[in-house]
């Protein structure tokens, strides 16, 4: 019954990890699921204007993981 006897973590101690995880997960989900070139903008304008190499690379992943895609 070890799990049941554990005291809950104070929400305050979860704040910083929550921020970090949200940032990381948001970036990854955006890259895999939604990017249309915006994330490529820091690399080059041409790459961004092309519609996004990420969009093409993750095309099959988007479809099979349920994201709306073109």
């Amino acid at each position: 019954m070890s799990g049941r006897s554990s005291a809950p973590l104070p929400v305050r101690r979860l704040a910083a990890p929550t921020f970090g995880v949200t940032l990381l997960a948001g970036l990854l989900v955006a890259a895999v699921g939604f990017d249309q070139g915006a994330l490529a903008a820091p690399v080059s304008d041409a790459l961004r204007d092309s519609g996004g190499v990420l969009h093409e690379l993750f095309h099959d992943a988007r479809h099979l993981l349920g994201f709306p895609c073109h």
């Binding site: 895999v32 190499v53 093409e56 099959d60």
Partner: peptide, 30 residues
């Protein structure tokens, strides 16, 4: 395709595994 970046079907299939690995990483962290 709304893009002129040349990505082959083979690369898109590799991208399926890579993409779900990255998404799985994010999902696992949450």
């Amino acid at each position: 395709d709304d893009s002129d970046v040349a990505i082959t079907r083979g690369q898109q299939k590799a991208g399926l595994v890579a993409g779900s690995a990255l998404l799985g990483l994010a999902a696992g962290a949450v």
